[in-house]
Amino acid sequence: MLYAILCYHREDVVGSWTKEEDDAVMAKLSVVHEKLAREGRLGPVARLLPTTAATTLRKDSDPPLVIDGPFAETKEQLLGFYLVEGETLEQILDTARELGRANPGGSYEIRPVGLYHPAPAPVSTGA
């Protein structure tokens, strides 16, 4: 089964990391990523830009309302996500624990994926 691992953390804390601290976390994470990729379990991975770059379209009005900023103002923000293949929830939790050791703090929300529609990769591969 395919699972989404949604990464939540306090943006003000992550934003206070020095470049060296940020690089160190990314380096540790890439070790876990490579292992998952070798096992054929790693799907798309995304790190999102800060919520200050976010725009929200509220569809409950007609026409929909465009609002600056993230959908919800929360203590921890959605900063990125993984799609990972796993046999059981326990296996995904192990994966999440491993990612968490490389990148402590915050929370991972684990959500089974209902519909997955992989399209050819877009031209821009992000920053």
Binding site: E11, D12, S16, T18, T52, D68, G69
Partner: peptide
């Protein structure tokens, strides 16, 4: 410079619809 960016991000999180702060950041 890093600190200025950090504080500008903080300010924009607090006032997310201010185009002047978007422009500054």
């Amino acid at each position: 410079a890093h600190e200025a960016i950090r504080l500008a991000r903080l300010l924009l999180r607090l006032f997310p619809s201010e185009p002047e702060i978007m422009g500054l950041l």
